[in-house]
């Protein structure tokens, strides 16, 4: 590319990512979260000592996106698998990457108890308010009134409960070092989320404590919205239910 010869590269694919193309839908924030995590791993220089624990769900291939060791966990069990890895090899940096069905429904017990023990792991919690992989069913985080394939008339809190606020739940515990909720709906929030992920990883490396970074994410396919409209929906509606910011920072 001769025309770029006088130019300096200021943004490149993180070195800790493999060359594989993501299997996510167009506009899906999972890919962005993967990139942010890769950037943070690069920045901390921990690619050779990081293990990615992938969930069941849209991110089931997450372990293949990184040039790090990786493991695929049973649905909801990623925090327990991460616990086992970290206890067996405390020198590793262990990242549990999970969606809302995985972390906040079938894996609720594993999630809460790993946090309550203060396992020295980093949990990346992708809250997109829907089961994406299985075709758009109601998640524990689905908003009141939001339509999904298993609540076609919208989530009725009278029989289905309200969206579960995971970050707030984890923030009630004494052990976690860092609990935060971030969003990716514009460049400013992407930058903030990037810093939050870096901090969570740094706390694991330096202070050996538990962090949860909840990321309010989109699901353009499941929400039946174009990606930009989905981002606007996050800004205007979703963040009212899931307020952004740090809930706990004991670092």
């Amino acid at each position: 590319m001769p025309e770029t010869q006088t130019l300096t590269k200021v943004f490149a694919r993180p070195r800790s990512l493999t060359d594989k193309r993501f299997t996510y839908c167009p506009g899906c924030h999972h890919g962005l979260i993967t990139r942010i995590l890769g950037s943070a791993i690069d920045k901390l220089g921990i690619q050779e000592k990081t293990v990615i624990v992938a969930p069941v769900g849209c991110a089931v291939f997450a372990y293949e996106w990184f040039r790090c060791d990786g493991v695929q966990a049973a649905h909801g069990r990623a925090a327990a698998v991460a616990t086992g890895i970290k206890r067996a090899r405390p020198d590793l940096t262990v990242v549990s990457y999970q969606g809302d069905g995985d972390l906040a429904a079938i894996g609720t017990a594993e999630t809460i108890h790993a946090a309550n023990r203060g396992e020295a792991i980093t949990v990346i919690f992708v809250n997109n308010q829907i089961y994406g992989m299985t075709g758009g069913q109601m998640a524990p985080t689905t908003l009141d009134g939001q339509r999904a394939t298993s609540c076609p008339e919208g989530r009725d809190p009278a029989t289905m409960g309200h969206p579960l606020r995971v970050a707030e739940l984890i923030a009630t515990l004494a052990a976690p070092l860092y609990v935060t909720r971030q969003s990716l709906h514009d460049a400013k929030h992407i930058a903030q989320a990037t810093q939050a992920v870096e901090k969570a990883l740094r706390y694991q490396v330096e202070k050996r404590g538990y962090s949860l970074v909840e990321i309010v994410a989109n699901c353009p396919t499941g929400w039946k919205m174009p990606p930009q409209k989905a981002n606007e929906h996050i800004a205007g509606t979703v963040t009212k239910v899931f307020p952004l910011g740090d809930l706990v920072d004991r670092g």
């Binding site: 624990v53 049973a74 327990a80 698998v81 086992g84 206890r87 594993e110």
Partner: peptide, 21 residues
Amino acid sequence: VQAESEVAAINMCYGAAAAGV
């Protein structure tokens, strides 16, 4: 680790086994 459940315990084993221990 005294796990929160049998399910968690076997999955902790899965993690430790994957780590080669």
